[in-house]
Nucleic acid binder design. Structure first.
Lengths: 211, 211
DNA sequence: CCTACCGATCGGTAGG
DNA sequence: CCTACCGATCGGTAGG
């Protein structure tokens, strides 16, 4: 599978028996199957029947777990958002070596993109399918990531480690666009160690800024 | 609108009157409207009724121009492919300055991405919705672009202009991923000259490789 | 290009 | 979680 799916979301269902809610497994399975299908066929291109059959239920039974199809998408993307937030939180601003800080940040982001390739693809493709009133709970991650990069690039410029001629916003959005595009070809289970590939990627991208 | 739509595609309709086929305009309008809707709502999320109403026809009337919904997608993406092919054809291999050649290539590709942002977004999102037997006519562009970058990077390495430690394929796919991601924020009609922004983008990306 | 229509499938619900 | 069902909409067609 692809990426951890921590639960604890509202699903309008009450835990019934003792000793570990039994159908949490079902819920996780539903999310995993939905993730796989949304990635390959897109949100609009995936029917509730597609999902239910892959899970082994009847279509209507899915509504025991959700209220609407969009709930599946929301839960998948909320999980991605929550798992990714750590990366930004770990960034140290005001370091004396902002370039190293930026390199660490990019490296982590690339590894994250590789490990969460499916959910990231769904985010990039179908975020707009999340009902408008729920979108703010998945605050458009891209902007946060870009803003973080902007701050570090600014610090690098002020430290004389990056040419001030370069437009910070352009540099940052290009950088993060490159980072998120890696999900399309990174293979976390592939022959090459993902941490090593990520370091290589970060190196190339940071070189472009630091020179 | 966004990008030129040269026609001359099969559409199962015969020119009737003299002096310039009158409903070629309609056909172009249909493609333009489809491009706009496919970009914002996705191929699967756009209905034939959405398109027909935006054009000002009834749904069934669209089938005077096409045989299936997929024909619209195919024509849009075939047009993108044809328009983009020039960029690769203009690349000079075996130059004595492969880095400059790579910079020119990347600059052109970025400008193209900006000018064809809508169609590129559709390509990246819904290429897989093109019927399998027609996909080869839009030979997965990405691969051609990546291969072209690979060749130029190899030449740069052999000329001692890029460290040989760097994996060529990784460098090339990262580079082209960054290039194609620019369609999301480039504004060809915006305040800044797109050629200038493209040069800036190319500079940053090439710096990462040449260093 | 419209009229009038097709079967299939869509997301979703009531009631158990 | 199943049974049985809903109205709405889907892509597409015949015939003019």
């Amino acid at each position: 599978m692809n990426a951890p799916q921590i639960v604890k979301q509202t699903r309008g269902r009450s835990q019934h028996t003792s000793s570990g809610a039994p159908s949490d497994e079902r819920w996780i399975q539903i999310l995993d199957v939905s993730t796989e299908l949304f990635r390959t066929k897109g949100f609009a291109g995936t029917s509730m029947r597609d999902i239910s059959e892959a899970v082994g239920l009847l279509k209507g039974s899915l509504y025991y777990y959700i209220e609407a199809k969009e709930d599946l998408l929301f839960n998948i993307l909320k999980g991605l958002h929550d798992d990714g937030e750590t990366i930004i939180e770990e960034v140290q601003f005001g370091s004396d070596d902002p370039i190293s800080e930026l390199r660490n940040y990019v490296t982590k982001a690339v590894i994250f993109a590789g490990r969460n390739a499916k959910r990231l693809a769904i985010f990039l493709r179908d975020f707009q399918c999340v009902p408008a009133d729920k979108r703010s709970q998945i605050i458009s991650e891209r902007e946060m990531y870009v803003r973080t990069a902007e701050k570090l690039i600014e610090e690098a410029q002020q430290a004389g480690l990056s040419p001030e001629s370069r437009d910070v916003h352009t540099a940052a959005i290009l950088l993060m666009g490159a980072v998120s595009s890696t999900h399309e070809w990174l293979q976390p289970e592939g022959p090459r160690d993902i941490a090593q590939v990520a370091a290589e990627v970060a190196d190339q991208l940071i070189n472009g800024i630091a020179s």
